[in-house]
Design a protein around this nucleic acid. Sequence first.
DNA 1: AAGATATATCGGTTTTTCCCGATATATCAA
DNA 2: TTGATATATCGGGAAAAACCGATATATCTT
Lengths: 99, 99
Amino acid sequence: MDQVEIFKALSNKARLQILNWLKEPEVNFPGQAEYGFENGVCVGQIHAKSGLTQSTVSEYLTSLQRAGLVTSVRTGQWTYYRRNEETFAALSKLIETEI
Amino acid sequence: MDQVEIFKALSNKARLQILNWLKEPEVNFPGQAEYGFENGVCVGQIHAKSGLTQSTVSEYLTSLQRAGLVTSVRTGQWTYYRRNEETFAALSKLIETEI
DNA sequence: AAGATATATCGGTTTTTCCCGATATATCAA
DNA sequence: TTGATATATCGGGAAAAACCGATATATCTT
């Protein structure tokens, strides 16, 4: 767990917004319903909601993944992203006790 | 509490190091002993230990203060900085529940 | 195979961050 | 007042981040 990388990933309003949306995929990405929420939400759904370009959203998701804040699964032509709650729990504890 | 500002402040190895040093001022800043630790540690002590220039350390401490991660007290020609544990606790909880 | 769709990557411009050295400001000591 | 000490601020060069549009890659459909 690279602390600096995690904090950098969290140092951006759009990325925080995405993470927050991913807390409740069913609520925030109804368009995902027909494909299910098991693996997370695909890039296009996030792109559509974000107001950012597709390339920017893709980059942001990659950076969140590098930081360990989300995980991804590729299925066919889609890549699904979802929160990695373990990292959030570990980060919370880290701030409480180590930093 | 500006989340982005806090995470930006934490997105730097040197600043994380300073915060960590400030967890145990008596251990990490023995040179401060003759002036006491009540108000924190003065800039010069941190500068001496950091390997960064005085101006950089001063700026970093200011940014940590803007984020609410430290507080400062000016006494004579010295400015003492210490951790603001309330912010760390609040941030930990924030990550656990909101972000 | 050809076209459509989804995502990732590449190249680039603008803004921000990282640091520095120099200088300004404030206090203290003589 | 003069000089020393501590900190803050200013100006700037180099590196990184924030986006974007264009393009590449991979899969799906027909």
